[in-house]
Design a protein around this nucleic acid. Sequence first.
DNA 1: TTGTATGCGTTATCAA
DNA 2: TTGATAACGCATACAA
Lengths: 339, 339
Amino acid sequence: MAGIPNAGSAPTLEMVAARAGVSRATVSRVVNGSPKVSPDVVAVVQEAIAALNYVPNRAARSLASRRTQAIALVVPESTAKVFNDPFFATLVQGIGLALADTEYTLSMLIESEAAFDKTRRYLLGGNVDGALVASHHTGDHSYAHVSRSLPVVFGGRPLDPGEQVNHTVDVDNAHGAELAGDHLVERGRRRIAAIAGPQDMPPGVDRLRGWQRSLERAGLAIDLVGYGDFSPASGAEAMRRLLEREPSIDGVFAANDQMAIGAYTAILETGRSIPGDVAVVGFDDDQYAAMAVPPLTTVHQPSLEMGEVMARTLVRLIDGEDVPATTLLPTRLVVRQSS
Amino acid sequence: MAGIPNAGSAPTLEMVAARAGVSRATVSRVVNGSPKVSPDVVAVVQEAIAALNYVPNRAARSLASRRTQAIALVVPESTAKVFNDPFFATLVQGIGLALADTEYTLSMLIESEAAFDKTRRYLLGGNVDGALVASHHTGDHSYAHVSRSLPVVFGGRPLDPGEQVNHTVDVDNAHGAELAGDHLVERGRRRIAAIAGPQDMPPGVDRLRGWQRSLERAGLAIDLVGYGDFSPASGAEAMRRLLEREPSIDGVFAANDQMAIGAYTAILETGRSIPGDVAVVGFDDDQYAAMAVPPLTTVHQPSLEMGEVMARTLVRLIDGEDVPATTLLPTRLVVRQSS
DNA sequence: TTGTATGCGTTATCAA
DNA sequence: TTGATAACGCATACAA
């Protein structure tokens, strides 16, 4: 079976073994850091490895060991918005950070409409030991299905609270929005509007609900609600309509910073000042919030930490540890000059 | 060797073969769309595949066929800046778009300082059929080395023009900056400053050079140069220093939009108006450029197209086709209200 | 502590 | 057109 070592292509375990004068098994043990190999043999083998510039073949290793040392990050949303969202960028960063401590590598699956089956096949084809699903919204019950045969951690809760998805990591959206509402109330604002996100996305729903709770507690009306899709342009448009409908608006909570920046445009267009005439509070604390003119008061979302927690949770899941089904990360208000 | 089909875990070729009453070889042919299989056999096999919900194991397939159907995207920069850069986000989008038409999947390697060897091992360990290296700057001669044993396409030229890297796709940075300079000159500006990017990054160098060429051609001084790191904060800081040094500045070219937005802050702080007192031109045409107040005149960089071209180039390279060593993508000026 | 032998799930090379 | 059977490169139970 052994045959002649293939001299042409990439070095194999076999070639290292031949050069070191030991068996393939021993080389394998050294490569995998087995404790039961005598020091001198380890030295000889490592020298051979270095000399040949040997790198283990992952496919072979994965086939034999039944693990891949890779995890997938699935982004089931139409790419454009997702990638232009600083939140997502930071999330990926956190994931990368957490994974840097491990031997896992990240495989990114960009989910376009047509490629759903491609992704599913990839996940089920033994390419990864587990998957991270970011931005979990309406359509993807399909991935809940995948989670039955593969460890999966979802970022964000499922849209339907009744739907028990095994493992999720989420940010406390509702509470953050309440903080925003409370802050505007404390600042003496009375006609407080909201620019909500899509109501088919959990953060869209939760942030609107938090705002409502806060205003109701203060005895204020919750009739001033506009909707956007989390983009700056949609925020501007929603704000324009709100101001037309109710010129006396003196405060507004936008469900994310990008829409808040859009609202800035609409408010300034009408000659109103920020925060003099209208106080603005956003959500996310993305990098543009602090740079806006005036700097935006917003709810800080721990997106970096969320990425880290998601990755660590998945790794523990893969290792067979017991992890909580749901992790909720705290949010906090960052007061700047727009309120 | 055959043994009893493993009923517990994922379905294998073997199990499909048993159910369809054919050999493994035939099932393999059907899965791979071989033309030399009789239609009725194809039908039976496909039914068995569907019934068992069979998905080929990628590791085994890769081991046997010596290809992985995966390509890596290497991001060799400290993650924070890269991920907050809209340019990068769009680049990834373009790559995803181009790959959606193919059977390739994307593996993302986030390069932290310490993990360099991990990345190298991954690339050389037979995990991918080729690699895309984004944001190619100083340190990574290492990847030029990798490109000798694996098809690699670099985004952006190497820092040292003399260093012949096999395949690169780049944007015409110098020409874009010239367009920006020419535009400011045409608008009658005479004291035109530049906020340059890091001079250890090719775009930083090329964009500054383009601005210089334009001003020299117009007979203007090129003494007003500040430097930033492509972040909004650094743009603001550079602008503050420039205005202190030379209060008569009436135009500024920033090497990217984020620094231009930072410059807005610094300019407005001093009570100056845009473009009345100071005209501003950026570079990139990212999504915030159009939303800025006033909307930012900028040089459009085809980042989406760049991603697509990089991906397509790599695929062709993997297929053994002949592709040009360098592809240069055109830039164009987008005039808005800041100039 | 080390080596032998077998299997991981496919593809590919032969024959039939 | 189909079927045996040998790789593919490594891990691991079992023997020594």
